[in-house]
Structure formats: C-alpha cells, structure tokens
Amino acid sequence: MLRVLIVDDELPARERLGQLIAEIGGAQIVGDASTGLEALEQTVRLAPDVVLLDVRMPGLDGIETARHLSVLQEPPAVIFTTAYDQYAVHAFETYAAGYLLKPIRKDKLAAALAHAGRLTRPQLRQLAAASGARRRTHIATRRRDQVSLIAVQEILYFQADQKYTTVRHAQGEDLIEESLRTLEEDLGTDFVRIHRNTLVNTRYLQRIVRDADGRYCVLLRGCATALPVSRRLAGELRERFRV
C-alpha cells in the first residue's frame, strides 16, 4: 500500500483527490494538510511515501514546501498539483518532477502515483528557480525527527564549518546541511558575504569595528558576537551599507 499525504488549501480539491485515490486502489490516504507548514508536520509524523502538493498555497507555497521536505532523513516522493501555472509546469517538465493538472483525472493520478519518485535537493533548487517561485521565506532545520522552520528575516547570519552550516537566528542556533553558496544564491541581496565562511543578513548590520589585534569585525544588532570581516570586503561593506 502506498501511503499518501494530500496537501491543498482548498477543501474540495482535497476531497476530490481522496475520492480518486479511494477508487484507484493500491494507495491509502494517511492524512491531509491545508498549509505548507502543516504538510511538513504531517510528513514528519506520518512518514508518507508520496505527498500530493498544491503549488499555490498561502504562506509556504508548494515548491518551497517541497524543498523543506527534502531536508528530511527520508524525504517522501512529491507530486505537484496545479490549476494553472505556466512557469511551474514548464519547470516540472524540465526537471522531470511529477505533476498533475486540475481538474485532476483518475488515470493521470494513477500513473503519477505509480511513477512517483523523489526529487533530489539540487533538482528542487533548479525547479524553484525555473518556476519563478518567490524567494525562499524560510530555512528548514531538522532536530532528530522534528522539522522546524526559521523565517529568513529572523536569521542573523550563517557560518560554514567543514560539513555543516550554522544558522544563527533570533531563537538560537541550528545546523543545516546547505552550503553557503547555495544559500547566498537563494537569498539574494538581503544577505551579504562578509567572509569566506560567513553570510550576514543585511538588515541587522550595525557597524564595522577593529578588534584589539586590528582586524575588522562586523557588529550585528541583537548579537553579541563580533564577526570577522575579510580585509578585502571591509571597505566595500562600509561604502555599501554606511556602517
């Protein structure tokens, strides 16, 4: 039995998928969700094999939700559903992501379920870029089997180690597996690289100072740690942000 989670903000759309899956057989609905966040929680709790994910939802949209799902230990397969999103559909075609057009047909749904595959994280990244999705609004982190989301505007900085990246945010610190380069590309101009291993949220930039050894450091609002700045970037930063 294929275990399926249905995610759509509209009740009739969820009902329709439920009806069709019941008729198809071979699959079982383990739960449903009406927002991206709920979808994440349900996925962690219920460990479905396949998530049917609406592209256009309030809050986290389908594509961002899929990206967050992909950080799970055992991410489910994803099939997107959409009424009409030219760009998204084009992107699904390009990156071989499973998708269904509404109104959803039973035979198409059966075929999609039979072939549902996992999308890799790089695949999802490209998909997000190609579908004209909004910039990421959250970063997902995993603590044991618990997924939590950190709003991008609450993040002070990212700092890369050998293997992991530390996210420093309003509520504390977390580890993620994404590289600084990926994050930098995803988050755009709201974040700035101040050092080989540090990416800083520009909205918290306060001041550039020199420490006791004469090295440049950045002070962030709401953060006691002074972050080292590479000499090359100090002048540029000062000019760009008048700090």
Binding site: P12, A13, R16, Q19, A83, Y84, L101, K102, P103, I104
Partner: peptide, 18 residues
C-alpha cells in the same frame, strides 16, 4: 483568469460526487 476557471472545474468535479 485561467487559474479561476481550472480551479472551479476541479471544485465542480469534486462536488458532482459528494
């Protein structure tokens, strides 16, 4: 708006049964 049309059709498809 195509989005509206297709979503409405999907809704109607769901309602025809229930």
């Amino acid at each position: 708006r195509p989005h509206f049309l297709f979503n409405s059709m999907n809704t109607i498809a769901a309602l025809t049964r229930t």
